[in-house]
């Protein structure tokens, strides 16, 4: 006889969304899973990885979505175990703010340099 596996693990808070099923459940699961990092892979999401770990994590996402948990709650659930590492899109907070701000700052600095160079070239040509 197959023994029942009893699991006590879960999210303590109640779901903030609506329980889903069918096609909508699959679409939502895929969307959320595509933003969660597979911890045993190189830069793959749990939606893209065929590893057993990713399959188990995706099954957990599906279960939570079916019960009405929101993406924010599901992200927090995985963050509690893996930290922010598990999120493929870093949240706009703390040190992560730099990840969002630095590319924009670098682009602005580049544009500024180009502008300065162009102005100098124009001045040189006119004189």
């Amino acid at each position: 006889m197959i023994l029942t596996l009893i699991l006590l693990i879960g999210i303590a808070e109640p779901p903030h969304g609506t329980p889903l099923q069918g096609g909508e459940l699959e679409r939502r699961t895929q969307a959320i899973a595509s933003e969660i990092r597979c911890p045993v892979c190189q830069g793959l999401s749990i939606a893209d990885s065929p590893s057993e770990m990713a399959v188990n994590m995706k099954a957990e996402v599906r279960d939570l979505v079916a019960r009405g948990y929101t993406q924010e709650q599901i992200d927090r659930h995985f963050e509690r175990s893996y930290g922010q590492f598990v999120l493929l899109r870093p949240k706009f907070r703390g040190v992560n703010t730099l990840v969002w701000i630095l590319p924009i700052a670098a682009l602005a600095a580049g544009a500024f340099l180009v502008l300065l160079t162009l102005r100098k070239l124009t001045k040189g040509a006119l004189s």
């Binding site: 699991l7 057993e52 930290g83």
Partner: peptide, 14 residues
């Protein structure tokens, strides 16, 4: 840990 839920809860990566 048949379905890996405990490993996930503990943040096991390997």
């Amino acid at each position: 840990d048949e379905r890996g839920k405990t490993a996930i809860a503990y943040g096991v990566g390997g």
